[in-house]
Nucleic acid binder design. Sequence first.
DNA 1: TGAGTGACTGTAA
DNA 2: CTTACAGCCACTC
Length: 116
Amino acid sequence: MCPKPKSNDSFFEQVYAVARCIPYGRVTSYGAIARILGAAKSSRMVGWAMSTSPNDVPAHRVVNRNGMLTGKVHFVTPNLMQNLLEAEGVKVKKDKVVEFEKLFWDPIELLNLPFG
DNA sequence: TGAGTGACTGTAA
DNA sequence: CTTACAGCCACTC
């Protein structure tokens, strides 16, 4: 499911909404999420939002623009983020997503969906 | 009400 | 290639 963010939702809620739409086995960046929310310069807020993200938000699929698992330390255990990614078929090496450019999913695609 | 914070990013040396 | 710095703004205390 992919509920689109509502205008009346707080910035955090909108971030969660986008994060929940990240396809299985794919990843995106904080900046990409911030961008489609119209706050390209608030990428830091996205990361911070993830720190307080509900358990149903796949925060492990959100990495920085280089594909690095910069937020891994905020998980229950530092290895959990990589663990979850690898469980989805995403290879991780030295805290970086392998072939990040191929696995990268731009949230802008949500706007192109026919049912969008 | 105001100052502090941060799981980022782009540019420069 | 690596390292450094400044901007950014929604949220918390």
